[in-house]
Design a protein around this nucleic acid. Structure first.
Length: 501
RNA sequence: GCCGCUAUCGUCUAGGGGUCAGGACAGAUGGUUCUCAGCCAUCAAACCGGGGUUCGAAUCCCCGUAGCGGUACCA
C-alpha cells in the first residue's frame, strides 16, 4: 500500500472527481479525525473493506472533518497509520474540509427550492425549546418556527447581527429504509425535525456533507455503526430533496464493553485505541481476526481466518443484529495463536523492538543467534510481544531481586530449609564449575545424577536453581536457560543467590 | 421524557417448527513435564418472561420486561 498512501498523504488525489464506475461496488469509511482510530472504527473499516474486496469493488477513505473545532491533523495521520498497520488500504481518499464549495452549491439549491430555510434561533432559545418540548412529552423539539418568519423579524435579527443556521425542511411523507442488516422499516415523518445542515458560521454539518459525498463519490453501500441509524432518515430526506441517489445502508451492531455499553473514547480512553494494542504487542492479524468475529461469523467451526480467507468468505448478510462485547481474553488467545504461527526468525524480528524499547538491547550488536535461541526457548509462552520482557529480562541483566512468593515456596522459609537449599545450590555450583563440557546434555546428566543419587527431588533442586538464575519460578526449560546464560554468568549468579539466602 | 434498535452458556457465536441446542474463548478438574505456558482428557455452563398459532415453539405472531443507541449549530 506504500505508494498509494504516500500520495494520499500529500493530498494529490483529485477531490470530487471520482471516475465513473458502473455497477461496481463502492464503499467508504468516514472517520472524523478527532482522536485515534478505535476498535469500533477498525471493525467498520474492516467490514467495508472486506465487502469491497469480496466483490472486487473499491474501498474509499473519507475524512469527515467538518467539525473544525475538534478535528486535528495529528489525529488524521494517526488514523492513516493505524489503518495501514492493519493492512486496510484505500483506493481513493477525500477530505471534506477541502470540498466546501461542493456543499455550498447544494445548500444554495436547497434554499432556492424551498427545501431549506434560515433559522435565527440562538442556542439559548433552542435550549429552551428543547426543555419545554421534553416537559410536554413531545416527539420533536424544534417546531420549524423560523420557516415562517416575517421580513420584519428577519430584518430585526439581521440588525442584531444574528447569524442564521440553515435547516432542512423534513418531508411529511414516510421514509423507508431498507437496511441490509436490520431489514426494512418505515419512519414516521412526524418523528423527524428540521435539522440544522449549515452552522451559523457557514460550515456545513455531517448529515448534509455525508449524504452529498456518498452521492458525489458514488458510494453504493454505506456500512456503519448503528449509532447512525437515527441519522439515516434525515440523510435520505436531504438526498431526496436534492434528487440525489441514495446508497444502500447496512447498520452494524455496536462493540460493547463488558457491562454492555458502547465502547467509546470518552468512557474507555485508550482501551479502545487500536494503537494501544499495537504498542502492547498485538499483531494486526489477531486484531483483524478478533474484530471481524464481533458480530459476524462464517459457520459453527471456524474461528481463525487469514485475511485472504476473510475476503473470500465475508458475507455481509451474516452480520448479526445485536451488539457484541469486547472480550480481551479472546483477543489474547488469537494473539498468541498468531505469534506462535510466526517462525523463530520472524518472531525474533517482532520482539526486538520491545527489547530495545525496554533498554535491554542497544542495537544490532547483540548476537542474532543468541536472540533467536532465547525466543526459541520461550516457545509458546507469549500472549503479546510485550510479554517477551518479563519472560526474558534475566537473559540480559542480573535478576534485580527474587520473587518473594517463589522464594518462600522453593527456597523455604525456615532456617533448616534454607540451609538445605544452600547446600543444594553449592553442590550444583560445584558440579557446573567442574563439568568438562558445558552443554545441555552434560549438564542435564550431571544434575540428575546428583539429585537422584542423593535422593533430592528434581523439582526442588531445579526450582531452587531457577530462582537463583532468573529470580522467578516460571519460564522455559532450566537447562536451556543455563546454556543460554553461559558458564560464566551462571557461575556468577549462583553464589549471589546463596549469599542472599 | 421522546424516537429507535436488540434479546441462545460469563463472552463471541452456530442452529432456527420435532436436535442429547453445536463450536470457540474464558472457567474448573485430572494427566504429562524441573516450574510456567502448552498439549491431552474430562466437567460445568444458555434459548429474557407471558400469552397465542401448532400435534409440536428456542425457532412464527402479539404483549411485556430488560439492555443499549440516539435525542447538538459532534460525527
Amino acid at each position: 500500500m506504500g505508494k498509494d498512501s504516500e500520495r494520499t498523504e500529500m493530498n494529490d488525489t483529485p477531490n470530487g472527481t471520482a471516475a465513473l464506475v458502473g455497477d461496481q461496488i463502492r464503499v467508504r469509511m468516514a472517520p472524523s479525525p478527532t482522536g485515534y482510530l478505535h476498535i469500533g472504527g477498525a471493525r467498520t473499516a474492516l467490514f467495508n473493506w472486506l465487502f469491497a474486496k469480496h466483490h472486487s469493488g473499491k474501498f474509499i477513505l473519507r475524512i469527515d472533518d467538518t467539525d473544525m473545532a475538534r478535528s486535528t491533523d495529528e489525529s488524521m495521520h494517526e488514523i492513516y497509520d493505524a489503518l495501514r498497520w492493519l493492512g486496510i488500504n484505500w483506493d481513493e481518499h477525500y477530505v471534506q474540509s477541502e470540498r466546501r464549495s461542493i456543499y455550498d452549491g447544494y445548500v444554495e439549491k436547497l434554499l432556492e427550492s424551498g427545501n431549506a430555510y434560515h433559522c435565527y434561533c440562538t442556542p439559548e432559545e433552542l435550549e429552551e425549546i428543547r426543555t419545554q418540548a421534553r416537559l410536554d412529552k413531545q416527539t420533536r423539539s424544534y417546531d420549524g418556527r423560523c420557516q415562517h418568519l416575517s421580513s420584519e423579524a428577519v430584518e430585526r435579527f439581521v440588525a442584531e447581527s444574528r447569524k442564521p443556521t440553515v435547516r432542512i425542511k423534513m418531508p411529511d411523507t414516510p421514509i423507508r429504509i431498507d437496511d441490509i442488516v436490520l431489514g426494512s422499516r418505515v419512519i414516521d415523518p412526524a418523528t423527524l425535525e428540521d435539522e440544522v445542515i449549515v452552522r451559523s458560521n457557514g460550515m456545513p454539518n455531517y448529515n448534509l456533507t455525508s449524504i452529498i459525498d456518498d452521492a458525489e463519490i458514488q458510494i453504493t453501500h454505506v456500512i456503519r455503526g448503528t449509532e447512525h441509524l437515527n441519522n439515516t432518515p434525515k440523510q435520505i430526506a436531504i438526498a431526496n430533496a436534492l434528487g440525489l441517489k441514495v446508497p444502500q445502508f447496512a447498520h452494524i451492531p455496536l462493540v460493547l464493553d463488558s457491562s454492555g455499553r458502547k465502547m467509546s473514547k470518552r468512557h474507555h480512553g485508550d482501551l479502545v485505541a487500536v494503537n494501544r494494542y499495537r504498542e502492547q504487542g498485538y499483531l494486526p492479524e489477531a486484531m483483524l481476526n478478533f474484530v471481524v468475529r464481533l458480530g459476524w461469523s462464517y459457520d459453527d467451526k471456524q474461528e481463525i481466518f487469514s485475511l485472504d480467507e476473510l475476503i473470500e468468505k465475508f458475507d455481509i448478510a451474516r452480520i448479526g443484529k445485536s451488539g457484541s462485547v469486547f472480550d480481551i481474553k479472546k483477543l489474547e488467545w488469537l494473539n498468541s495463536h498468531y505469534i506462535n504461527q510466526l517462525d523463530i526468525a520472524a518472531r525474533t524480528d517482532a520482539v526486538i523492538p520491545f527489547w530495545q524499547k525496554e533498554g535491554l538491547l542497544d542495537d544490532a550488536t547483540e548476537d542474532r543467534d543468541r536472540l533467536e535461541s532465547i525466543v526459541e526457548a520461550i516457545g509458546e509462552r507469549l500472549t503479546t510481544l510485550q510479554d517477551i520482557i518479563p519472560q526474558t529480562r534475566y537473559f540480559f541483566t542480573n535478576p534485580d531481586g527474587y520473587d518473594p512468593k517463589a522464594v518462600k515456596k522453593w527456597w523455604g522459609n525456615s532456617e533448616e530449609k534454607r540451609g538445605k537449599t544452600s547446600e543444594i545450590l553449592t553442590t550444583v555450583l560445584q558440579i557446573l564449575e567442574e563439568i568438562p563440557t558445558f552443554n545441555l546434555q552434560t549438564i542435564e546428566a550431571a544434575i540428575w545424577k546428583y539429585t537422584d543419587e542423593n535422593n533430592i527431588k528434581r523439582v526442588a533442586a531445579m526450582q531452587a536453581l531457577r530462582i537463583a538464575l532468573t529470580g522467578t519460578s516460571f519460564g522455559p526449560s532450566l537447562f536451556d536457560i543455563v546454556v543460554l546464560l553461559g558458564r560464566n554468568e551462571t557461575l556468577k549468579r549462583i553464589p549471589k543467590a546463596i549469599a542472599h539466602l
